[in-house]
């Protein structure tokens, strides 16, 4: 038996991780230096969720995928030129900051409101997908709150795999400590999944899918409403990039064992 799912993936953009990310004070709190000008990519965690969603939708005919994004729409549009080639989805946009310095509660509220506004969404069939973390901020809190706000209380975090059973139930593998998995079974939709890396590679670009996506997704970008994130009481005392210490030594012929030994000794101090 196949199940029909309405899969809502929450995901936005982050600065390309290769860029120099330097926090600076802006007029409304901390921002990243030149953030608007830096190239952006789809948040990798959300990306895993999206590819898993597309795969699940394909395996369960009648299913649909929405990508719900809170982000600056001009930047989102650029990123969509790549992402929309990967899998078919309907984009839903709330135009606002996707910076790592926004309040996760406000972010969750905006996402939940936006999802509530999706006309064709049947919440009884809803699987709420997202990243269990974000590359711009690792609060790990947004998806849980979105779920709560939408009344989805079956929640799983650090998900690497879900398997839909013949009866429509979903077996879930969540990451727990020490590289182990916790296995659970949920009866079916609605449920929320914060994805870890999942199991799928990034699909190759397919411009044909991209063109189909953009035909319906451009209006979504054009009509995106400005998101209201003003309710926050969050303030920052200070922000800085974690200091990295780098001590480089060039060794040509060190064996793997020697390297491991040295790392262990270094860790022990």
């Amino acid at each position: 038996m196949s199940s029909e799912f309405h899969i809502v993936v929450c995901g936005s953009i982050v600065p390309d991780p290769l860029q120099t990310l330097a926090p600076v004070d802006g007029p409304t709190g901390p921002t990243l230096q030149n953030e608007m000008m830096l190239p952006a990519v789809l948040d990798p965690w959300a990306g895993h969720a999206l590819y898993e969603a597309a795969n699940l939708a394909q395996a369960n005919p009648g299913s649909q995928v929405w990508l719900v994004s809170l982000g600056p729409k001009a930047k989102l549009q650029q990123v969509m030129m790549a992402v929309s080639q990967k899998a078919p989805f309907q984009l839903v946009v709330a135009d606002g900051s996707s910076s790592g310095f926004t309040d996760s509660f406000e972010t969750a509220k905006t996402l939940a409101d936006t999802i509530e506004g999706i006309a064709d969404l049947d919440k009884s069939k809803m699987l709420l997908f997202g990243g269990w973390q974000s590359a711009s901020r690792g609060s790990g809190a947004v998806m849980q709150m979105v779920g709560e706000m939408l009344g989805v209380t079956e929640q799983f975090q650090g998900v690497d795999k879900i398997t839909v059973g013949d009866d429509g139930s979903i077996a879930v593998m969540e990451r727990v400590e020490g590289g182990a998995y916790q296995k659970s079974v949920v009866d079916g939709a609605p449920a929320a999944f914060g994805w870890a890396t999942g199991e799928l590679p990034e699909p190759p670009n397919n411009p044909q899918i991209g063109m189909q996506n953009m035909q319906k997704n451009m209006p979504a970008l054009m009509q995106a409403k400005p998101a209201d994130l003003s309710g926050t009481s969050l303030t920052f005392e200070g922000v800085e990039v974690p200091q990295q210490r780098r001590e480089t030594r060039v060794e040509k012929d060190a064996s793997v064992d020697d390297m491991a030994k040295e790392i262990v000794e270094w860790l022990k101090g």
């Binding site: 000008m37 830096l38 190239p39 001009a74 650029q78 030129m81 790549a82 929309s84 080639q85 670009n205 411009p207 991209g210 063109m211 953009m214 451009m218």
Partner: peptide
């Protein structure tokens, strides 16, 4: 300069098909 600069200078801001070809 990133894609947004190029798209203006080389006049393909409105051509999503071209922008996708770039990404591919």
């Amino acid at each position: 300069p990133g894609d947004d600069v190029r798209q203006i200078m080389w006049r393909f801001s409105e051509r999503f098909d071209f922008q996708m070809a770039v990404q591919s």
